[in-house]
Amino acid sequence: MMNEELHTIAAELKERFAADLYEFRGEVSLILKPEDIVAFSRALRDEYDFELLTEETAVDYWPEQTPRFHVVYRWRSLKRNTIIGARVLLDGNSPSMPSIVKVYLNANGFERELWDMFGICFEEHPDLRRIMMPADWVGHPLRKDYPLGYEEVQFTFNFDEIDQRKPYAKE
């Protein structure tokens, strides 16, 4: 990995978008404002040869509220053989940010998943429906305040008790 080249790019982008830069274990990430993300990804694609959007996901820092969500992006450049990351910080109260589907088409699936799992709304997304859960599902499962949904396990000592209330299917 050409680290110097990556650092130059990151420094340039930091300057341009007034972003924060941080590095952990050789991975460079920028912290961006939500309204910059489209221009940022367009610059990455057209000026710095980052051809692939590798992933787009989110982390929920509940119970913190401002910011509650970090939307994590990662782009890969085949030409430069490197990866650059970015984070966008969102508030907990009806989080919403611009979509980058028009720049990287595969953001479509990622953003639908983020809507489904975290309830983060992407403006101007062409098809923001639930992707994993059924359409009538309530809640956003990957949020930290959403319970895991643990069901009590049947062991020998509580077998009969659970067996009685287990909803067995009929013919």
Binding site: E27, T54, V72, R74, R76, I83, G85
Partner: peptide, 16 residues
């Protein structure tokens, strides 16, 4: 936080 990717039979398999 780290991101690591390997080449799976289907493409880039990464974990964040």
């Amino acid at each position: 936080s780290v991101y690591v990717a390997t080449e799976s039979p289907r493409g880039e398999l990464g974990v964040f």
